[in-house]
Measured scan of single mutants.
Amino acid sequence: MQRVNMIMAESPGLITICLLGYLLSAECTVFLDHENANKILNRPKRYNSGKLEEFVQGNLERECMEEKCSFEEAREVFENTERTTEFWKQYVDGDQCESNPCLNGGSCKDDINSYECWCPFGFEGKNCELDVTCNIKNGRCEQFCKNSADNKVVCSCTEGYRLAENQKSCEPAVPFPCGRVSVSQTSKLTRAETVFPDVDYVNSTEAETILDNITQSTQSFNDFTRVVGGEDAKPGQFPWQVVLNGKVDAFCGGSIVNEKWIVTAAHCVETGVKITVVAGEHNIEETEHTEQKRNVIRIIPHHNYNAAINKYNHDIALLELDEPLVLNSYVTPICIADKEYTNIFLKFGSGYVSGWGRVFHKGRSALVLQYLRVPLVDRATCLRSTKFTIYNNMFCAGFHEGGRDSCQGDSGGPHVTEVEGTSFLTGIISWGEECAMKGKYGIYTKVSRYVNWIKEKTKLT
């Protein structure tokens, strides 16, 4: 034993070699072989497995989906700052455009905790909710729209109204504003409101030439003092309507412009014939205590009207009353817009006519005020429907199939267009061939041609 100890002390290297040989010859039971080890760690190889990531292109799944990435790591994937920024906006807080917040056709661009709407022409605001041009839906104005110097929408209202708090709607500024039905039992019968379409306001006024200088022999019209197929109006439903009495009662109609003036057809009036105007009328054979009678003290036909040349060209006249009318729910003026808007309103496509005229061709006159909704007829169809001249200051309205029309005794009465609950004068009943005849239409004086003249002559002093 002493000898062994001496050998170990003198030859430590020998001992180490012996131990190493023993270990190498022993069977290893701690580690699995290569094949079995792979069965336990069965993990798919990654895209760049075996390579240094710093030297390969980034992978979106590896960089940002398996674990949260930084902007720089995302930049490695896209290799483009702009594309990385677009991805980053949604990656950080989701897609803010998912709810489609942009209105009126706006395009949404996502941002971090926010979004941006790219608005089409005519709109602005956070969600493109603000109209900035009158060309689109009248700028959301209830009545009139004008573009300011910086191309912003400025709404306005006709006389007797003021802008509401929203700067879009119009509200009454006087007790009985024009064009409004205020009798409670008839307010439910107000005709369907007309909503502004998209309009090209630059070209809204037709490029028409008034044929002022045409000389033409007097034409022989049949029954051209021209509501057939209409309905009984309720008291106060058309408070701007008046009836004219002269040699015979209810020979023509008219509309209240203001307390002192009536507008009617020029062919209705004769110099030297006494005319009485009755406002607030409903049943011409009954006294309903809503009527107001006034005498006409002055007749002003349009300066281009000449019955000797043509009885229905420039067929418009103004009547001055001896005493002002007292405005109330049964006696209310009709609204008159400017030339541009009167023309736009007419193009809405349908209007209402009213009167006490004959209820059928050569038949009896109506006792109760009649009204009828009539569609506008395109000019080409209008011209083809008659052998008589249709001037540019006239328009056609009615039904091709016949059966409904204005008729004798309705002449001078109103053709009105309702705009968001307020009625505007767009025409004056003038003439036609018979009444409600198939293929024939009622012919009306186009008020847009005469609004400046009306307003100039009827100013209240």
Rank of each mutant, 00 (worst) to 15 (best):
D33M: 12
L383G: 15
E54R: 01
V181G: 11
G94W: 08
N213V: 08
R358A: 09
C435L: 03
P239Y: 01
V451M: 03
A397T: 05
Q2E: 13
G58K: 00
A266Q: 02
G351N: 06
E35P: 14
L318G: 00
Q90F: 09
E286H: 10
P414K: 01
V257K: 01
V248M: 07
C170K: 01
G106T: 03
A207T: 14
V227G: 15
G351K: 02
A317E: 00
E79N: 06
G402W: 15
K457N: 15
Y115T: 05
E291D: 05
I297H: 06
S385Q: 14
W356I: 09
L244R: 01
V242D: 00
F251W: 08
R226L: 07
V243G: 04
W261S: 00
D111C: 08
K137H: 13
I15M: 12
N38Q: 14
D322F: 02
L60I: 13
F121Q: 14
C382Y: 02
E231H: 13
Q90W: 08
K247Y: 06
S406H: 13
Y341N: 13
I316N: 00
T426S: 03
T186K: 11
Q143G: 01
V154P: 04
E286L: 13
L327E: 03
I344W: 08
T342M: 03
M437T: 14
C128F: 02
I17Y: 14
Y352P: 03
E165Q: 12
G21A: 14
Q408V: 06
K68V: 07
T342K: 01
G355F: 14
N147C: 08
N151L: 11
N245Q: 09
Y91F: 06
F87M: 04
E418N: 11
T458S: 08
N80D: 15
N127V: 08
W453V: 01
E129R: 04
G94C: 05
A380N: 10
V263W: 01
L23T: 05
S25L: 14
L14N: 03
V447W: 00
E193V: 15
E61D: 04
V227W: 15
H400S: 14
G409L: 08
T332E: 03
K362H: 11
A307E: 07
S114E: 14
E231A: 13
L425W: 00
D131V: 06
G229L: 12
F121G: 14
L319T: 02
E53D: 00
R404T: 15
G427S: 00
M6D: 13
R140K: 13
K39A: 12
V199K: 11
V195G: 15
H400F: 09
I299W: 07
C157H: 00
S114N: 10
E10F: 13
G421Q: 08
E86Q: 12
N283G: 08
A307S: 12
I428G: 00
K188Q: 12
W88M: 08
E456Y: 08
S406E: 15
G105L: 05
H267K: 06
L244F: 05
H34M: 13
L24A: 14
Y352D: 04
E67S: 02
I336Y: 02
N104S: 05
W431H: 11
W261G: 00
E434L: 12
E76R: 02
P177H: 02
P44Y: 13
A366S: 06
N48W: 02
A307Q: 11
W453R: 00
S354V: 14
I15E: 03
A266L: 02
T190N: 08
C170N: 01
M437D: 11
L325K: 01
V248F: 09
A37S: 15
L369G: 07
I112N: 12
G432H: 08
T417F: 02
I17L: 14
Q90P: 06
K446R: 12
G229H: 07
F196W: 14
S70A: 06
H34R: 13
C157S: 00
I262R: 00
F31K: 11
A164T: 12
I40P: 13
P333E: 02
